[in-house]
Amino acid sequence: MLGISDPWIWGVYVLCLLSTLLCVIYGALKWNYGWEQEREEISEELAWEKSEDELEQRLGL
């Protein structure tokens, strides 16, 4: 198949494409999933990022 005789190789070639497809389908189906908590999550993230900024300034990174 695909010019490759070893099933372990053409198998993984196909598997790579299928796992990418899985990522695409999952991402597309869940595109807007969880938007209800997003506002709260963003404020949590903001608080976290402020602490990280302080750390970076302290360490000069």
Partner: peptide
């Protein structure tokens, strides 16, 4: 993962990330 704004962003990133790594 800690710098991601929300879980929704992570779901979306799966789509682009999968294609990118491939």
């Amino acid at each position: 993962f800690m710098t991601v704004r929300s879980s929704r962003e992570l779901n979306r990133a799966v789509l682009v990330g999968g294609i990118f790594i491939l």
